[in-house]
């Protein structure tokens, strides 16, 4: 079994050496391997189709340089295309000109929102901000306690009203409380939901309307498979998120969902969550994702040197 795209490509192009251009037949073999590699990395079926056709265009008649084997040459093209899609550099946080900056988190059940709320709070405090969290998940048993325990752990206040009031009202009063208390960065935790549950999606819309957030972040588990696109499009429609937090990156999932969602929604991944500890959180560096999706760390350094 091949673990990396480069191994696959080298086998597909076995015997092709030296300079010249790739033949049509070689390109065909190569694109088949790329397609399989991307599908195994959970890149969405439709996104793969489009991506492969772009690569095919570039690879046909591409010059094979002396420094790179034909396989490496194709890896380079694939990597460039991936990096272009993912967006080159990290997206830094921006803050509202009139504080507090309000950030709302949304996403599917169990993808890591509440944990990310605490992590983001800690992260912005290190940037000199005064964070404040609002507990708007009134559904999941002990969701409020979870955020409160996290808040105590990192010493960040949590506004909570239990589970009776409507989440949009809690959000509104929470933001007011933050402003009154002189806090300049508010994070709103919302309940996990499935996008087919239209009542819950409408609720999210109401919370968004009430909170008027500076930024809405979709929290997405890196193990997400083919339906990431459908999910992201629904959250785009109801919550109009402007970026994502990719979670559970400490595992071994390839993370094709990240590529799928960025390519379909045009929204960048802004943060990476990689662990259960509050400190395991950082800006997301898109250039690292291409290598992860294709499993080709060392080959990339090889190419960079060539």
């Amino acid at each position: 079994m091949f673990d990396t795209l480069s191994e696959r490509l080298n086998t597909a192009l076995d015997g092709v050496r030296g300079s010249g251009t790739l033949t049509e037949d070689q390109v065909k073999k190569v694109t088949r391997e790329i397609r399989l590699a991307l599908l195994e990395a959970d890149v969405n079926y439709g996104v793969v189709k489009e991506f492969v056709s772009n690569v095919r265009e570039r690879a046909t008649g591409a010059e094979v340089s002396k420094a790179l084997s034909p396989g490496q040459q194709v890896v380079k093209i694939v990597n460039e295309e991936l990096a272009r899609l993912m967006g080159g550099s990290a997206h830094k946080l921006s803050f509202a000109s009139r504080p507090p900056t309000v950030v709302m988190l949304a996403g599917l059940n169990g993808h890591g929102k509440t944990t990310a709320a605490g992590k983001l709070a800690l992260f912005v405090r290190k940037l000199g901000k005064q964070p404040f969290m609002v507990a708007c998940d009134t559904y999941r048993p002990a969701a409020v306690e979870q955020l409160q325990q996290i808040g105590r752990e990192i010493n960040v206040p949590v506004y909570a009203e239990g589970v009776e009031p409507a989440p949009e009202e809690i959000a509104e009063r929470g933001i007011r409380a933050a402003r009154d208390g002189g806090y300049d960065f508010v994070i709103i935790d919302t309940a996990g939901r499935q996008v087919v549950d239209l009542e819950m999606m409408e609720e999210l819309k109401r919370v968004r309307k009430a909170a008027r957030p500076h930024s809405v972040l979709l929290v997405l588990d890196v193990v997400t498979g083919q339906n990431a696109v459908e999910v992201a499009q629904a959250f785009q429609e109801y919550a109009d998120f402007d970026g994502m937090i990719l979670t559970k990156l400490d595992g071994d999932a390839r993370g094709g969902a990240a590529l799928s969602v960025v390519s379909v929604t045009g929204r960048p991944i802004k943060f990476a969550s990689e662990g259960e500890k509050m400190s395991e959180f950082d800006y997301f560096y898109p250039d690292r994702m291409a290598g992860r999706i294709l499993g080709m760390g060392d080959v990339l350094t090889l190419i960079e040197k060539a």
Binding site: G225, Q226, D252, A257
Partner: peptide, 11 residues
């Protein structure tokens, strides 16, 4: 196993 899981579910 979460139904939204992709190929990592196998591992």
């Amino acid at each position: 196993v979460d139904a939204t899981t992709g190929q990592n579910g196998l591992r």
